[in-house]
Design a protein around this nucleic acid. Structure first.
Length: 446
RNA sequence: GUGGGCGUAGCUCAGCUGGUCAGAGCGCCGGGAUGUGGCCCCGGAGGCCGCGGGUUCGAACCCCGUCGCUCACCCCA
């Protein structure tokens, strides 16, 4: 640190992801794309920012996010824009703009921005892995969507989490229910916590989600939305539950589950880790949003999706000791004690042969270069010294007990291929582990 | 927006009630022993103790302010 000025830091609530954590991220995102691709989802990319109106109308004016957490700004043309605080509204906007064939099943892994106070597991920029399926109201799709998230978590080794499920009804049954709930709460407003007591009129549903003893006590025998679903919503929900049973997905019916976005209808769900010892243990959530397209000013179309938090998922993995950090991994490290020119040639030759290779710079001592080679995780070192004759190089296995041998420069590629074949054919330990996992899953599935 | 905790080398932290208090381990760099790495041994670099002000003969240690980090409420991934 300079005494003249403090170096810049990442902005509050944001963070850098360095190796080896960065490799773990990469691996997690690959697992996710693999997983959803196998269920027919296609990748989609929408802009990092949208017209703020897209979020205001979609998420809801009175929601916390739109009210005080959006990164919104006016651009040089005077347009009011906002950094994406969630993934669903932009995808629905894109659907309305392009009208692709339905059902439109898409996935994304993208950063979200919300100006909140950071804390454990909560950031101003976080990344979500999500899917959206637009154009079908089939309860089978609801079940598939829930299963997709549940099975993803399990595929990366998580077991200690609960899936909560609820139905939010629709425009036919929810308004009537809300009135009934409001009436119930008004009679008991004195007993609610101060915060929700004051919000009975504006948003009575939130009281159901409150964690204070008072609110839990009061709402324990409050009318339940699932008891007031209209026939369509009730039938839909029953089918969803049946299909989940068919799929072997276990869940807890949580009649208090109320999600923070206005656009949700019918099926809603959340995943909470039981292993995370912090307040923010929600690792994913989603639901159906059959009115969102209309809220955005388009023709009606139904849809359902979810978002899973990358950071929180990895925190849960840490807590469950799942999805371990990768080992450092390299095929070949070239140690050149003769000045470095030969290293330049050899490392390129190895790379051109589709093996990974690195080297030291700055003409360091043999000892220093060997230490770097060891640290690099390389399986093999190619050593060049003055003691060898013109066309020779030493091939030294670093991770097996095998002894080193002197080989001709011309023989480097075939010799390396042979050497690496014995220890895994240029495929690092992490990749091998992944393939074994994949094989195990296939066996399980059949 | 509200409240609690904390800010000492790259990292994790010691520094008793203010007077060699600027330290340790790890990491990093150099060297030794090894044919050439890992283990071991020796040595070294790197911090004006977040920043500013105050109290005092004297402050990393006390007080005030400020910035930052962190945890929690709210809400969410």
């Amino acid at each position: 640190m300079s005494s003249k000025s403090q170096p810049w830091r990442a902005p509050t609530g944001t963070h850098d992801v360095l190796w080896p954590e960065s490799a773990r991220w990469e691996s997690l995102l690959e697992r996710f794309s693999d997983h959803v691709r196998r269920a027919g989802y296609k990748p989609v990319t929408t802009p990092t920012f949208e017209y703020a109106e897209v979020f205001r109308r979609g998420i809801g004016d009175e929601s916390e996010i739109v009210g005080k957490e959006m990164y919104s700004f006016e651009d040089r043309d005077g347009k009011l824009l906002a950094l994406r605080p969630e993934g669903t509204a932009p995808v629905v906007r894109a659907y309305l703009q392009h009208k692709p064939i339905t059902p439109w099943k898409v996935w994304y892994t993208t950063p979200m921005f919300r100006h909140e106070r950071p804390q454990a597991g909560r950031y101003r920029e976080h990344r979500q892995m999500g899917v959206e399926a637009i154009g079908s109201g089939d309860p089978d799709l609801d079940a598939e969507t829930v299963w997709l998230a549940d099975s993803f978590f399990r595929s990366i080794g998580l077991t200690r989490f609960v899936l909560s499920l609820n139905s939010m009804g629709d425009e036919n049954c929810r308004p009537g229910y809300i009135e009934r709930l409001r009436g119930f709460l008004v009679e008991r407003s004195e007993l609610l916590c101060a915060y929700h007591g004051a919000r009975i009129q504006s948003n009575p549903l939130r009281a159901l989600d409150c964690k204070t003893e008072e609110c839990i006590e009061v709402t324990s025998d409050a009318p339940r939305l699932i008891d007031h679903l209209c026939d369509d919503c009730g039938g839909h929900f029953e089918t969803v539950k049946e299909r989940l049973a068919t799929l072997g997905v276990s869940y807890e019916l949580d009649t208090r589950l109320v999600r923070g976005f206005d656009y949700y209808t019918r099926t809603t769900f959340e995943f909470a880790s039981l292993a995370i010892d912090a307040a923010q243990n929600g690792i994913g959530g989603g639901g159906r949003y059959d009115r969102l397209a209309e809220m955005l000013g388009g023709d009606p179309v139904c849809g359902i999706g979810f978002g899973l938090g990358v950071e929180r998922t990895l925190i849960a993995c840490d807590a469950e000791e799942a999805f371990a950090l990768p080992e450092n991994d390299l095929d070949v490290f070239v140690v050149d004690a003769t000045g470095g020119e030969l290293a330049t040639v050899l490392v390129t030759r190895v790379r051109d042969a589709h093996m990974s290779a690195d080297r030291a710079f700055d003409n360091r001592s043999m000892k220093a270069q060997m230490k770097v080679a060891d640290r690099s995780g390389a399986k093999v070192a190619l050593i060049v010294t003055d003691e060898l004759s013109e066309n020779e190089v030493i091939l030294k296995p670093l991770r097996t007990g095998s002894s080193q041998r002197t080989i001709s420069v011309d023989e480097i590629v075939p010799q390396l291929v042979e050497e690496l074949a014995d220890s895994g054919v240029g495929v690092g330990p992490s990749k091998i582990a992944q393939r074994q996992d994949a094989r195990a899953r296939e066996v399980q599935d059949t």
